[in-house]
């Protein structure tokens, strides 16, 4: 069976080729999609390769940052917390240079465990996602985007540099697997705090109950358990996550408190 492969050379051409996204497999850096094809889990009929679409950029204007979907993860590893330290913790040297920010945001939830480490920091930063697909271009929050990420083509992400940010994750035993559990914290200019976790649900989740108790890090850690949907998977047991989530929440809150 022949596969229809499109390699657009501009953002507009990429949006047109994607159309409503039906039956289109998007190939960004390839670190997720190519191995799924090798293993036989994915058999594309139409593929859209974005390597020449002009979507790799980091633009800064004052405290505002815009990151193109095809930007390698390594290019945001030097940014402020929680995004920078999280990106620096993804995979290994070569994987970070090949994997893309947009691909990581859209990472599917495989049967074995959640993935998409950058979802947490982007959720905590309240990033807005510009994407295209059925109905044309739209901009929405990460929370909204994550609910239909397999039916949209990400163009770029925008967010503000926070007053303070922190990231804490469980150590990974070996390169490339997503982290089993991580917590991101962001303090905005008005003093409000946003918390998000990866590995505590099928995608990254907001820890609203913990945010409400943020003045007391220990209580906030316990409160976070009410927000989480902890599962047993190949990376860690729910039992272990239940014990570690409060500690990670405490750690990031103590860190941003000092700022």
């Amino acid at each position: 069976m022949s596969i229809d492969v499109l390699i657009p050379e501009s953002v507009d051409a990429a949006a047109e080729a994607y159309g409503d996204g039906r039956d289109v497999t998007v190939v960004g850096g390839g670190t997720i999609v190519v191995q799924l094809m090798t293993q036989g889990w994915l058999r594309p009929t139409r593929a859209l390769m974005l390597s020449k679409a002009g979507l790799s950029y980091v633009r800064k204007s004052g405290s505002a940052v815009t990151v193109g979907a095809m930007t390698p993860v390594t290019d945001v590893a030097d940014l402020f917390a929680p995004l920078g330290p999280c990106a620096a913790n993804v995979g290994d040297n070569e994987i970070r240079a090949q994997a893309t920010v947009g691909g990581n945001l859209c990472a599917p939830t495989p049967p074995e465990h959640p993935s998409g480490d950058l979802q947490g920091p982007l959720l905590a930063l309240d990033a807005s996602v510009r994407s295209t697909g059925a109905g044309g271009e739209s901009t929405e929050t990460v929370e909204e985007f994550l609910t239909h990420r397999d039916a949209r083509l990400v163009l770029d992400l925008s967010f503000e540099e926070p007053v303070a940010g922190a990231f804490a994750a469980l150590d990974r035993p070996h390169a490339h697997h997503p982290t089993a559990l991580a917590v991101s914290a962001v303090k905005a200019g008005d003093g409000s705090i946003r918390l998000a976790a990866t590995g505590a649900g099928p995608t990254a989740i907001r820890l609203s109950s913990a945010e409400a108790a943020a003045d007391d890090p220990e209580a906030a850690g316990q409160a976070a358990l009410a927000d989480a949907d902890l599962q047993d998977d190949a990376l860690a047991s729910a039992w272990y996550r239940e014990r570690m989530l409060p500690l990670l929440v405490q750690r990031v809150l103590n860190e941003i408190k000092e700022v």
Partner: peptide, 20 residues
């Protein structure tokens, strides 16, 4: 791992169509 334009890259994860 091979070098693509001088940078190390996993050849098993690289679709050859992106390398023209």
């Amino acid at each position: 791992t091979v070098l693509v334009d001088g940078r190390p890259q996993r050849s098993c994860l690289t679709a050859v169509g992106s390398l023209n």
